[in-house]
Each structure stands twice: as C-alpha cells, then as structure tokens.
Design a protein around this nucleic acid. Structure first.
Lengths: 245, 245
DNA sequence: CAGTGGTCTAGACCACCCC
DNA sequence: GGGTGGTCTAGACCACTGA
C-alpha cells in the first residue's frame, strides 16, 4: 500500500551504481583505465548515450575523470586532511584508516530542537555520540539524532559501530529503511569547543571548530537522520570543487 | 599567440549561459515558469537533447528545478545567512544587499605562501583586503592575492570595489583576462580571530570563524586569484546539497 | 486529453591522443 | 589511422500533470 518505493531505477543510474561498486572494490585501482563507452554499451546492451549519462554522474561526483583521446580513469584518492563529498555513497562508508568510538550510547530522550530539525511531530529522538579517529588520532566528534522510525531501531547499531567500526550510522541505518536515502543537506559553520566537546576532542576549551550539520532525506522527503559533527581544523578541511561554466 | 583560448563553447553551454543571464535579469522572476524543452529547441533551432543538456547544468547548480508534467521553475532565493554555491557565476556578482569596503589597498609585495598556492615562480603577489556587509552588518573579511598577470592590473579595481561595490574581485578581474575562469577549488576550515581580524569583523579576539580558501583557475589551469575569507559564524552558514544517487 | 519532463536509441561528426 | 571522449541530431516511448 501507499508507495512501494521500488520503482525501477533508470538504466543509467543502475550502471553508474554498478561502476561505483566496482571502483570501490578496486577493480580499476591504481589509476588504471575503465572500459570505454563502446565497450560498456556492448557489454550491457545499451546505447552509447546511456553509458555516457552514467559516466556523467560519476564525473560530477569526482569519482572518475575522462581525458579526450585517452580514456576514463579513477580519480586519485584524497589524502590526509582533505575530504571530498561528491556522492551520498561516500558517506555510507568511512574512509580507509578511519574508525569510530561511541562516547555516549544510544538513548531515547526529548530534544525539541533536534526533533524540529527532523520535522517531527513528537519531541522524542534517539541520540548517540561518537568520536572519529584517523590513523589513531581523534579529529571529530559526531552527535547523531534519529527519529522514531516505524521500524525497530537496529538492535546492533551500537555494536556495529564499535571502536573498529567502518560504517557510518547512515550506512548501517540505511539497510533497515524502506525508502532509500537520496538527498543530503549540509550546513557548515564555525563553533567553539565547550567543556565536554573539548574533553572528547582533546583540545582547549574555546578552541575553534568546524561544525557540519547533515540532514539525510529519504525518497519521500522524510528526514531519517540529523548528524552534527565538530571537526578539529588542524586535522580536517572540507573541500569542494566547482567548475565547468 | 600560443593558444587563443577562444575556441567556441559548446552550444549547450552557451544556451545555459544565456538562460543564467536571463534568470539573473529577472526575466523569470517570482517562481514563474521557464520555456519548455520544445519551445527552446524551436527558438534556438536545436534538438531537444541539447536543450536538456543545458537545463541539466542549471539544475545541477541549483538555479532551477524541473517538475515532471508541470515545467521548469527558478529556484527560490536562499535567504539571510544561508549561501549556496552551484556555479562560478554565483561568485562574480555579490548577492543583493551585499557591499564591500576596502580595508587595505591593493599593494604588490612578497608573500611566499600566497605565491606558492598560486603556483608562481616569483614570490611577488598583489594583495587587497576588504570587509563584506550584508544589510549594513559586517559578516566577513576577505584577503585577495593576485599573481603578476601578463596584463596590467585593472587600474580601477579599487574604485570599482568601493563601499557600494556589487562585484567581487574575480568578477572585475575576469573581464580583463584572456582565458576565462572555469574552475574553483574551495577549502573550508575553522580559525580563530587574531587582533586585526577581530577589529575589522567587530568580534572578540579568539572568536571562532569560518575560513574559506578559494582558488580560481582559468581554462589553461593557471591560478588567477586566491581569496581567503573569514566569516562570522553568526551571520553566515555555508550550505550544500548532495543528492540524486 | 494535450503538454511536460525523464529516459533511451541509433547514428553522425569532431578534436584529440597515441602508435 | 584507429581509438577515445565531446557534441549534436531525430525520433521514440513513458509517467505524470492539469484542464
């Protein structure tokens, strides 16, 4: 009943999704070349334009780049403190060498502000907090607010996010949702470290931090997660590229 | 000589450029509908696919949105402290009700770090600093570094950026460049206000600020401007949207 | 029902790269 | 010269909107 939400995705999107997964699995690692338009059109029985449409999305997300006369290549990994967000899927898995550690367990409680930002009728949200480490060094702390979803919250959400967790909350959560997450609205601003925040991040009180609010929306426009992350500017820079007039 | 750089832009890009300008001029103000694919194809003598390609860029930039069965509409303006960057052209004109005031005049001097980030052989850059106001309130301070361009620096660059200026430096500069600006690399992090910065921004020393470094590249890959802006978080939030799996 | 945007195909020409 | 990606065309079918 209602909308099943399982309308078949367009062919070009399924192709770009398949290519993303193959890239993530390292099938084209080390700057090796991807198949050409014509090869993929042949392999999947598609027109070249449909293949190009799929590549267009990957290029826009910064995952690959194309060179006229040469071919299509996997973009080099961003290293150290630079992070690029070009696709929602980049958020469902933590980058290599990054782990999370829970500092406040999942608890259901009233939070008017978070509930309002999640556009809930109720004032109750479930909240969990954790720190993120890269190469063993804490570089951020995240507070996640989840609405009362129709489904039971995944019971393993905490154990799955243990010290050596490699998934983000949204990555774990998404497997339990009926509608997929299709949009992320991100607001970035600056903040200063209060006492508890400074304690978890290992910085002085009053230290300048980068604050990112990320609101995840499913295909029905419902907010399914609000994540508020404070980054240590010494260890994290948010980078975006705008181009192609 | 060398490369003239005046290779004709693709038709779809010229169309999207024309539509951008008409939108900026208010031809489709107040959520009114834009022409349909077929109308534009007819008017410009193009195929529908080419028109769609032009619209795709505008949609990706967040300038317009399309509703199946209804039409194409200009996206609502972001208000107050939210700012969205979807296209380089958004940077060449200041938003409405925003002005600039020079606080340090243009001067040529040695700056190894800035020269390095502009990838110059020389250590000399020209630097100018100004504050930005919105509705009369200072919300940011920008330091702009310019390389020694082949051309004479526009003599009117300061007067053009007076108290009531409506152009950004890159907007003025771009009219004097041989190659157009086609790419912007932006890094965002947090910083704290030093004494002079705090003075210009009217905030306490040590106040948390949002710092954005913007490097503008022309079509030959040369850096033509490095702009370092510190924003007051109370009056500015950087917002981006990621979507469409 | 006509009109809209979303998708896909089949074919073409071009500039560029590399052999 | 063959292969690559970039562009453009002409036509088709679909789901959805709104009168």
């Amino acid at each position: 009943m209602g909308d099943p939400g399982d309308e078949p995705a367009p062919v070009h999107r399924r192709l770009s999704h398949a290519l993303r997964e193959q890239i993530a699995a390292g099938h084209f690692g080390g700057g090796r070349r991807l198949p050409t338009d014509f090869e993929l059109a042949e392999e999947y029985g598609l027109s070249r334009q449909t293949v190009r449409r799929a590549f267009h999305d990957l290029v826009a997300g910064g995952l690959v780049y194309r060179v006229p006369g040469k071919g299509t290549f996997v973009a080099e990994q961003e290293t150290s403190r630079l992070r690029r967000l070009g696709a929602i899927e980049d958020l469902t898995n933590l980058p290599a060498d990054t782990t999370t550690e829970i500092v406040a367990p999942l608890r259901r409680r009233a939070d008017i502000e978070a509930a309002g930002r999640l556009r809930l009728d109720s004032d109750f949200v479930s909240t969990v907090a954790y720190v993120r480490r890269h190469a063993g060094i804490v570089f951020a702390m995240t507070i996640v607010h989840l609405p009362d979803l129709g489904v039971q919250l995944p019971s393993g959400i905490e154990s799955e996010l243990g010290t050596t967790g490699v998934h983000t909350v949204i990555g774990v959560l998404e497997r339990h949702l009926v509608s997929p997450v299709v949009e992320l609205v991100q607001s970035i601003t600056a903040a200063t470290a209060a006492e508890e925040m400074a304690h978890h991040l290992g910085c002085p009180i009053g230290h300048g931090l980068l604050r990112a609010d990320r609101l995840y929306l499913d295909s029905d426009g419902r907010a399914v997660e609000l994540a508020i992350t404070h980054f240590l500017p010494e260890h994290y820079t948010h980078r975006t590229t705008i181009g192609r007039w």
